[in-house]
Structures are given as C-alpha cells and as structure tokens.
Amino acid sequence: MKPPPFSYHLPGSVEEAVGLLGSLENAKLLAGGQSLMPMLNMRFVLPDHVIDLNGIGALSGISAVEGGLRIGGMTRQRDIEFSDPVKTACPLLSEAILQVGHRQTRNRGTVGGSLSHLDPSAEIPAVCAAVDAEIAVTGPNGTRTIPFAEFPAGYMMPAMEPDELLVSVFLPSWKPGHGYGFEEFARRHGDFAIVSAAALIEAEGGRIKRASVTVSGVGPAPVRLRETERALAGQAGSEELFRSACESARGIEALEDVHAPASYRQHLAAVLSRRALVKAWSRIG
C-alpha cells in the first residue's frame, strides 16, 4: 500500500501554513500522521498537497496559564503523558492519554491532530468536552476561539473552515483536590474505545458541588450527560446515587456498527459513567 502522489510542503510558521492552506486546492494538513498516514496508505484520501506541520516549533508546548492549561496543537501525546503540569492541572487528561493508542503512536500523535480528526471514540475530545475546553483556530482573518461544545459540527467534522488550522487548546482547571475518573471499554488494549466515560467531581462538606460526566463512542461526538450532572448536584456521593443518576445514559441516541449495536453502547454508557464517577468520588482529596 502506497500513498498516492502529492506535493509536499513544509512551512516554518503558522502564517505560512495558513497561506498555503488558503491558496492550494485539495490540501491536507499532516500533524502526527497516526490517522492521516493510514488513510493515505489505504488511499482513503487523495490530496494534491500535503502540508506538514512538523516544522512549526511554535505549535508545540504545554504551559500553565491563568485558570488552566494551554496545549499547542502539535504537542505530542507522549509529552502529555509525561507532563507534570498536566498531572497537576488536568489529571483527567493524564489518565485518559494512556488509553490513546500505543507508545509508538503516542510518540508521534498530536493533540491537534486528534481534535481535528474528531473520531467519535477518541479520548482527547472526550476530555475536552468534560472540562469545557476552548479550541483556538487560526485562519486568514486571524485567530478565533471555539467552545468545545460547539466544536463538533457532525460526525468526524470539526466546526473549522477549510482554511483554518487548530493552533492550541485551553483546558480550564478544576479546583485542586477534585476527583476525576476515566473508564474505557475496548476489545483489546490500545484499540479504539467502543465507549469511554469521563467524570469530574468537586465536593464541599461531603456533598457534590459540581460534577461533569461525559461519554464518548456513543454518539457522533462526545456527549455531556446533563441530566446525570443535575441529579448529582448537592447530593452526598454513594454507589447507589451514581447508579441511579447514570441510568438516563441508556436513553442517549447511539451509533450502531459492526463493533457493537446501539443498545450495547447505551448499556456501556450507563455502566462506564457510573464507574468513572465512583472512581472520581474516591479520589477527592
């Protein structure tokens, strides 16, 4: 299997990349290549131009900023796995990143690549939904910010214009001592998840002050379980509470494919979100 013929471009800056993206017909951006390269090898995509972002150093990096973390689009998943600032500011991401592929793919795969590809079962978009991340994209008219809730425009389709490039993501931090949990079900370690669930809990005086529950792999994009979150607010955490609060997940509209029927995904959504909440509650410090 060989990639189709294309012209290769290696811009050195975001401006140059955006210029190329706006002027070339049928161009694809190449980030870590862990999704685009297989699609090229199998000729699922046939671009006339490939714009390689690996020459733009400014797109990589993890920085603690006011209220959270800013992560550059070309930051490798490996760098997140070993990052202390991520462990401190967004431990949910540190836990979820271990479920992203394998060591060999995390060494190359990037945050921006995963977000732009927007696979329905991908872990990084799930974390972004859980923390209400903000995605920064740059195009010919400058940079704009998209709240993650508005980022998925459809199945594997981010709400970015064809001439825009994802430059960074901002992950708001939860209070120190909050509980977090990420649970995933896949047939084999490192496979795409069938369903995964992310939970965050902030407690005060033994009661849940704020909770976030997200499932992915169920619908075309990660889904926040608002009904579950409302049912948890103000309650004292318990296995029974989490079980009953997650029952509503069985009603989410779910995808159906060769891997699992919709009813199985709905069942997993309820079970995994409960487990993620139990884990998050046990970790409150």
């Binding site: 290696l10 862990q34 390269m37 390689d52 690996n54 793919t105 060494n107």
Partner: peptide, 12 residues
Amino acid sequence: VSARSCLMLAVQ
C-alpha cells in the same frame, strides 16, 4: 523514541 515507520514519510 519508537515510531511506526509506515506512519511516517521518509522526508520527515
């Protein structure tokens, strides 16, 4: 660091 050589271009 390990990488899958089928998922990298030679030019990279």
